[in-house]
């Protein structure tokens, strides 16, 4: 396993925001896993600014990009023991993105890794089967990224979130603080997208344009009937959403007759919006239920703790 130094850690704005939201809505500390990818970035030497020195262009820099996270419950130690030993069986390998490391978020505490956080990072980066390949390179890296989120200890009128990212270096047994790049949308961040690849995978729907030649597919159909079944199922789902406006008909949108179809299409969009709104309402209702249940659980836990102590 290589212990390559990561130059910086990038995280997309929405991911960081969602992580902070998850933290600030939880009652106690939370922790969890960070996913994403690590790639070599060849720094662009093209610049309008003549004063920029091209010192870094000689070597490629390694950038870890966090694209998603998985947060675990705040009350049970999740994937590690109380002393910080990681239980590898709790870390199922994910197919789409690599396990980069983990995060810990605790309110009102110093912005320094704790005793347990050190042990977890040490344990996580020492498990050989967790190391993952670096994109566009033959080397690999262990899950060595650690993101720490805290809030200040004294009460403050302003909501303050503090965070710091580290790379755990197995060779020196220490945390290396790294700068965090928050990748946002906008002209100032255009450069960041050079090495930024989207992570949301569009589901691989196995259907195609109906209007295209179906004859050629005959052979494939014979090869695997199950695939066809899947394709038909996917197509059915798509058709349900399209409500008669299947892709074939969309070609009519182009040309002189387009105006006849616009009202129909607007109608479809309206229906779609109504559906989304319905969905949002359902999510809201179920979230409220989850929240209620969590509150109830917390009260029970408090009661249990008090009872245990007063025995």
């Amino acid at each position: 396993m290589d212990d390559l130094p990561v130059e910086k850690i990038a995280i997309s704005g929405p991911t960081l925001a969602s992580l902070m939201q998850r933290f600030s809505s939880s009652t106690g500390p939370i922790d969890g896993l960070l996913f994403g990818h690590v790639s070599f970035l060849t720094p662009s030497t093209l610049s309008d600014d003549s004063t920029t020195t091209s010192s870094s262009s000689s070597s490629e820099t390694l950038i870890a990009t966090v694209t998603s996270f998985l947060s675990s419950s705040s009350t049970s130690l999740s994937f590690y023991s109380p002393s910080g030993r990681v239980n590898p069986s709790h870390l199922a390998p994910s197919s789409s993105s690599s396990l980069l490391g983990w995060f810990s978020a605790r309110r009102k505490s110093p912005l320094r890794p704790s005793m347990r956080e050190f042990s977890v990072s040490e344990s996580l980066s020492s498990l050989p089967n967790l190391s993952f390949p670096i994109l566009n390179s033959s080397s690999s890296l262990s899950p060595c990224i650690f993101l720490l989120l805290t809030t200040p200890i004294p009460d403050q009128a302003i909501h303050t979130h503090e965070y710091r990212a580290y790379q755990f270096r197995a060779s020196t047994e220490s945390f290396d603080p790294k700068s965090v790049d928050i990748v946002n949308i906008g002209p100032a961040f255009r450069g960041h997208y050079g090495a930024f690849s989207p992570n949301s995978n569009f589901p691989s729907l196995a259907c195609e344009l109906r209007s295209s030649a179906m004859v050629e597919d005959k052979k494939e159909e014979e090869e695997s009937s199950s695939r066809v079944k899947q394709a038909a199922e996917d197509q059915r789902h798509l058709d349900q959403c399209a409500e008669g406006f299947e892709i074939g008909r969309l070609s009519l949108m182009i040309g002189s007759e387009a105006t006849n179809y616009t009202t129909g299409l607007e109608d479809l969009y309206e229906k779609m919006l109504a559906k989304i709104e319905n969905l949002a309402r359902e999510v809201e209702l179920s979230s409220a239920k989850v929240f209620e249940q969590e509150n109830h659980n917390r009260k029970l836990r408090q009661k249990a703790a008090r009872y245990a102590g007063s025995e």
Partner: peptide, 14 residues
């Protein structure tokens, strides 16, 4: 640092 939500868990030290 203990966790008030889970007072039965072991504490952590900074």
């Amino acid at each position: 640092m203990y966790n008030a939500d889970s007072p039965m868990s072991a504490p952590d030290i900074i």
